[in-house]
């Protein structure tokens, strides 16, 4: 997608986008789309379908519970009597 300007295949993209935008702004409900609205995807499935959110959770949880909590305890070891 970096080379979007060089791509003849995508040359018409902008005008299609404008058409779509105008259609959206017109707020003219089309009967076809009203009949079959896209079914809402449950929250858990959206979570499982999002690799970067999972990556975030999979790194942050062990960093906090294992590493940060552990390092805090190590720094709080008192001097021996």
């Amino acid at each position: 997608m970096i080379y979007i300007k060089d791509s003849p295949a995508l040359a018409g993209t902008k005008s299609q986008f404008v058409i779509a935008w105008e259609g959206f702004m017109a707020q003219d409900p089309q009967p076809e789309t009203a009949v079959a609205p896209p079914e809402r995807i449950p929250f858990m499935q959206r979570l499982l379908d999002n690799p970067f959110l999972l990556l975030f959770l999979g790194v942050v949880i062990p960093t906090v519970i294992y590493i940060l909590w552990g390092v805090m305890e190590i720094t709080q070891i008192p001097l021996a009597k």
Binding site: L47, L48, L54, L57, G58, I61, P62, Y66, G70
Partner: peptide, 13 residues
Amino acid sequence: FLMYILFLQLASA
């Protein structure tokens, strides 16, 4: 698999 992503690494303990 989600349980792995969230908690498996803790077992380093």
